[in-house]
Amino acid sequence: MESLTAYDRLGLARRMDRPRTMDFIRRMFTDFIEFRGDRCYGDDHAVVGGVALYRGLPVTILGHRKGSNVEDNILCNFGMPHPEGYRKSQRLAKQAEKFGRPVICFIDTPGAYPGTGAEARGQGQAIADNIALFSELKVPVISVVIGEGGSGGALAFGVADRVLMMENAVYEILSPEGFASILWRDSSLADRACRLMKPTAQDLLELGIIDALIPEPEGGAHMDPDAAIDSVDRQVQRSLSVLMKQDLLTLVRNRDRKYRNMGSRKTLSQKTKE
């Protein structure tokens, strides 16, 4: 797998047969029950939320939902949420805090949906509120980037005590196609853009943005989805058992500190020295 370029990995991350949030939920958890709606406007099918048991422990699950065929994908808008999705997530995250349940998030989205309804109902506001809420949520939060993590729409589920990332997942500021068309007015240069953006798990581990890289089966997660999900499961288990031992004050303080230092003068100068 060493020879894969960032663009190769993007291709793997976008494969329709790659394990999706629902596959992780089915294999890693028991007793999952989906809870829907933002209690305000609607239910966003691009975001799945609910409660399940993780090895006997009640947890709240949130994730982007993508389909494994075109029909399903149309139903869940290709995993691109509207504001309702982020507001549903806020509702369920607050509920998790109330009942002392850890939150486990699965990130798999090209980005928040750029549409007129989404703007009219406050996409920016909804994402900002989500990010702010997770920055101070008083329960352990683990976030796993399982496919494409696109822009603020991904980060909304990515403010966590531990951010884990699958080997071939990408986490980016915007799609490499968009990036290329903005910088060079040529979306066919996505390959080059992808390399420069440094969006791979290896890049982001080195930049200190993610906490762990989860290896995938030879050839990518789609070659052996069960094995891929099981290695995510093992890492989630390791992270959660550490986080569950911390008192909530320490937990939130550490999370705060982690994000405070992202790209601060201190951390950047350390990086330059290395």
């Binding site: 822009s151 910088l183 992202m262």
Partner: peptide, 23 residues
Amino acid sequence: GARMQEGTVSLMQMAKTSAAMRR
């Protein structure tokens, strides 16, 4: 929006500034 030339590091500034605002 985010500074493109700083990639995902820029994205994280959304989290950093929002968390600071909450405090």
